[in-house]
Design a protein around this nucleic acid. Structure first.
Lengths: 205, 205
DNA sequence: CCGGCATGTAAACGCATGTTGACTTAGGTT
DNA sequence: AACCTAAGTCAACATGCGTTTACATGCCGG
């Protein structure tokens, strides 16, 4: 009974899960407002009305995507508490292989303001939640002024990888052909480690 | 006769320009598909039908935004040919002050795939055009395999700033409050310069 | 075997969108 | 002053959207 089928119909839980999966891909690549529930339903192969029935509304489906994303983004799954290097490695591992809208971190980063007020509020809440979790993993406290720059650098690192995802997937601009994955990853990782580990000497001298 | 008024109506050229300006803000913050021509017209304070009359269609207005962006992105206005440092400085100067959808580079970076096939083609063309111009300014030739890594690093630099724009504007996540502009800019600039200047030693041992 | 319920479908509604055609008004020319 | 053309408005349209209501279908316990 715990073994859930993934392909056929007549399984509400499975259908819900496949709807969320398809919705995450659409939301990540096209944005909230440009995504239509009819397309999501067609991706799964079910009727549109099921979305309203299961999730109440398009925003409910979006919220389901985000809540599942938050669960999967449990920092303990992203990195073990400890060194910054591990954090960087895991983040790079999560992001650098593209395109993969199923990755919850990618989904979180790819989402943008869409003009829809409530959807934007959901997204903002999720992002702030993740930032707090990330800070907690790294042992940083936002209230501690000496560790704030580290949190800022984490944001820069995330932003860098967000931009890479954008360039390589959403914009259609591909890296130069001869650049191997190692060529791409290595200097990026070095820069990120430098950003994260090099303190700005807040009170030093 | 060359002095064009900027506020009142009954001036076709001025109205067209204000429509393009308003459209660029909407497109940059909400994306192509989520932006409605009625909102753009309301921003300017004119009737919706003028958009269809002046630009043919919503896509025509989008194309007008992009062509103007390409003109303003003349690399000679972004940086004088020469050192990579100048390029980085100018790019940071263009991006780091936020939010400013009027900046053509920001507009270019903020645009994303929107599910609209023709609009995506326009955006992709513009991005490729800018990448080529950027490579030309830096004296890089895509055909030269030894300079390809530099072009890749330029893309990384652009991606980084794109991500910063995303985080700081679109996602609503603000940098930590105590971080001054210098705190934000300095380590970023160092990292970007390192990325751009440090060659990956393509054939070096 | 069969009723009942969960699962899925089909069609329609109300609304917002992009676009179009006919109409109105301002401003310069004769 | 009369007029004409450009500049702008207004109302309507076809379409696609999210959502709802009514209907069909498979599955399980008696």
């Amino acid at each position: 009974m715990d073994n859930q089928q993934t392909t056929t119909g007549r399984d509400a839980a499975g259908t819900r899960r496949r709807l969320v999966q398809a919705a995450r891909r659409r939301f990540a690549t096209e944005g909230f407002r440009a995504t239509t529930v009819r397309h999501i339903a067609a991706d799964v192969g079910v009727n549109v009305a099921l979305i309203s029935r299961y999730f109440g509304s398009k925003e409910g489906l979006f919220e389901a995507c985000m809540s599942r994303t938050v669960d999967e983004l449990d920092p303990r799954r992203i990195t073990r508490p400890g060194t910054v290097d591990e954090l960087v490695d895991r983040l790079i591992g999560h992001i650098i292989e593209l395109p993969n809208p199923d990755d919850p971190l990618q989904l979180l980063l790819l989402l943008r303001s869409s003009g829809d007020e409530r959807a934007d509020a959901i997204r903002r809440r999720t992002l702030e939640s993740f930032t707090e979790r990330l800070a907690g993993v790294a042992g940083w406290r936002a209230e501690d002024p000496t560790t704030e720059p580290l949190l800022l650098r984490a944001q820069i690192a995330i932003a860098t990888m967000l931009g890479l995802v954008m360039l390589r997937t959403s914009t259609g601009v591909q890296p130069v052909t001869s650049a191997t994955s190692a060529d791409f990853t290595e200097p990026l990782g070095q820069a990120l480690r430098a950003l994260l580990t090099t303190a700005p000497a807040p009170t030093q001298e």
